[in-house]
Design a protein around this nucleic acid. Structure first.
Lengths: 119, 119
DNA sequence: CGATTGTAGCAGCTTGCAGGCAACATATGG
DNA sequence: CCATATGTTGCCTGCAAGCTGCTACAATCG
């Protein structure tokens, strides 16, 4: 269940790259990329944030999505947490129902701004 | 402006420990502790999460508070983010007003459960 | 004064992360 | 069948984080 690796492979194929083609574009060896895609890294863990950044760039992907799949907290979110720790600490304490309601409120605000720029 | 170091010193003094007394209790050298308190570490960065954990333990402090002061995202919060990424991504996108309103809703829920256990 | 405390510099050392390399297997097309 | 492109895997290495462990020195205080 390595969603991250699967997603990378998906994106790579969508661009028609082989491992050996993509590797130099993101500045690593092709064998390392294979391990990343199959979650077979020597150590316990995932690709570095900087590699994910380059991958997102070259593959025209959503960097935050990739970071999250690789179990990294994106900086944009981390910064907010460090600015307003109490809010996030409280948020993490809520039960599912309460959290769900907060999520709905957040969704409302988000929808509103998306509605202003329709296709 | 090293809030973290200052807080550690505060907690240590409150317990009446000297650097040389506290150091063995958390398993590091006293000179290293001094550097931690003064934010004068050889490298760019902060104390490790494991050291912060032991400090919180020995000093009877709030581990999450210390982690946040040291610019680490506590696991409990990180886990929530990885479970519900979309919510947190949206949350980080809100402007100050919107965020403020969400914060108030969260605070309400939190207050309610605190009210059930009065002093 | 002498003992304790904190500050600071510097030379290591250990571990884990990040990635390279070479050999191998597999597949595909002519 | 061969040649070439592709993906997989094991081992090996470089480097930086996060310390240790001195040493020396200044400040404080009883």
């Amino acid at each position: 269940m390595s969603k991250f690796g699967d997603r990378i492979r998906e994106l790579r194929k969508a661009k028609g790259y082989s491992l050996r083609q993509l590797a130099p574009l993101v500045g690593v060896g092709f064998s390392y990329l294979s391990k990343v895609e199959n979650d077979k890294l020597d150590f316990e863990g995932t690709a570095s944030e900087s590699l994910i950044h380059r991958l997102a760039d070259v593959l025209d992907a959503d960097e935050e999505e990739l970071l999250l799949l690789a179990h990294h907290v994106p900086k944009r979110i981390a910064d907010r947490i460090l600015e307003q720790p109490e809010v996030f600490r409280a948020l993490a304490t809520l039960n599912s129902d309460q959290f769900q309601r907060v999520a709905e409120q957040v969704a409302k605000y988000t929808l509103r701004s998306e509605t202003r720029t329709p296709k």
